[in-house]
Amino acid sequence: MSEPVPTPERWRAVDRYFAETLVGHDAALESAVADQRAAGLPSIEVAPVSGKLLHLLARVSGARRVLEIGTLGAYSTIWLARGIPDDGSVVTIEAEPLNAEIARANLDRSGVGDKVEILLGRAADVLPTLEAAILDGSAARFDLVFIDADKESNTIYLDWAARLGRSGTVVVVDNVGRGGAVADPAATRSDVIGTRRGLELLGTDPRFDATALQTLDAKGWDGVAIALVV
């Protein structure tokens, strides 16, 4: 008997099975996605199984303070906020005012709004402003960092993840597979080049120990990198 071929129809069926079996339905999360769609935001939020992974990573790592780079409609933010203690906090950075407005409404409706601070602006500009409070002791270092913004800036975001984190901080970088293009030496798209440079940094920078996994889910063929700040 021949092995099944992983066609998009088949892997999406498996993804639906995983999501139905292990994630289930959640009114607040589904409403967040619906409101994002209604407002015309792009359909680039993480898949439900990936949202659950972020939630579990926050719990497994014992994270109390989380940094998210790229909020969109707050689907992943809700998952992260639910994975930290009641007195924990998520700082999420969003460049687009409309996205931030929708995210705030979704967070408040989901019951985690009091845990989440949305910082509006380009992440490359906002990240340096977080360092002073850490250095003067008025804010704790981040225990988990989720990077899901423009791929061209991944090396910038990773550098700040190390600077704002601590030994043992978990760093998650989304969308590292780029539909297989990340392994194509002839690929010239800026997002692919930025992703590749980020992975190369994770593989060579002594501040990190990392791996990456390919994913086949509702969002297609992609991947996720997971690292520890050492």
Rank of each mutant, 00 (worst) to 15 (best):
residue 54 L to T: 04
residue 144 L to S: 01
residue 16 R to H: 13
residue 71 T to M: 05
residue 121 G to V: 08
residue 31 S to H: 12
residue 54 L to Q: 02
residue 182 V to Y: 04
residue 179 G to A: 06
residue 89 S to D: 15
residue 190 S to M: 04
residue 119 L to G: 01
residue 30 E to W: 10
residue 136 D to P: 03
residue 162 A to R: 07
residue 103 A to S: 13
residue 225 A to P: 02
residue 181 A to C: 00
residue 229 V to P: 02
residue 100 A to E: 08
residue 97 P to G: 13
residue 79 W to G: 06
residue 61 S to A: 15
residue 4 P to D: 03
residue 204 T to F: 03
residue 166 R to M: 04
residue 170 V to R: 06
residue 56 L to G: 00
residue 124 A to E: 11
residue 130 L to D: 02
residue 179 G to R: 10
residue 212 A to L: 10
residue 119 L to E: 02
residue 58 A to P: 11
residue 143 D to A: 10
residue 187 A to S: 15
residue 5 V to W: 00
residue 174 D to L: 04
residue 42 P to C: 03
residue 191 D to I: 08
residue 52 K to Q: 15
residue 30 E to R: 05
residue 51 G to R: 12
residue 139 A to L: 01
residue 57 L to M: 15
residue 50 S to R: 02
residue 33 V to C: 04
residue 89 S to H: 15
residue 23 V to W: 07
residue 123 A to I: 11
residue 225 A to C: 06
residue 48 P to G: 13
residue 80 L to C: 08
residue 207 R to K: 00
residue 192 V to L: 00
residue 175 N to V: 13
residue 166 R to F: 02
residue 159 D to I: 03
residue 79 W to S: 09
residue 50 S to Y: 07
residue 212 A to F: 12
residue 66 V to G: 05
residue 47 A to K: 03
residue 3 E to V: 00
residue 196 R to M: 06
residue 65 R to K: 15
residue 142 F to N: 06
residue 155 T to K: 11
residue 230 V to R: 14
residue 2 S to K: 15
residue 2 S to L: 03
residue 180 G to I: 09
residue 230 V to M: 14
residue 181 A to Y: 00
residue 123 A to Y: 14
residue 222 D to E: 07
residue 152 E to K: 11
residue 226 I to Y: 00
residue 155 T to H: 11
residue 6 P to L: 14
residue 64 R to S: 14
residue 56 L to N: 03
residue 38 A to G: 12
residue 105 A to E: 15
residue 203 G to E: 13
residue 143 D to N: 09
residue 95 A to Q: 15
residue 109 R to H: 06
residue 22 L to W: 13
residue 29 L to K: 08
residue 85 P to G: 02
residue 23 V to Y: 00
residue 37 R to A: 13
residue 69 I to Y: 07
residue 109 R to W: 08
residue 49 V to L: 14
residue 68 E to M: 09
residue 132 A to L: 02
residue 140 A to D: 15
residue 56 L to Y: 12
residue 180 G to F: 09
residue 193 I to N: 02
residue 221 W to Q: 09
residue 190 S to C: 02
residue 165 G to L: 09
residue 133 A to L: 07
residue 127 L to M: 08
residue 149 A to G: 07
residue 13 A to C: 01
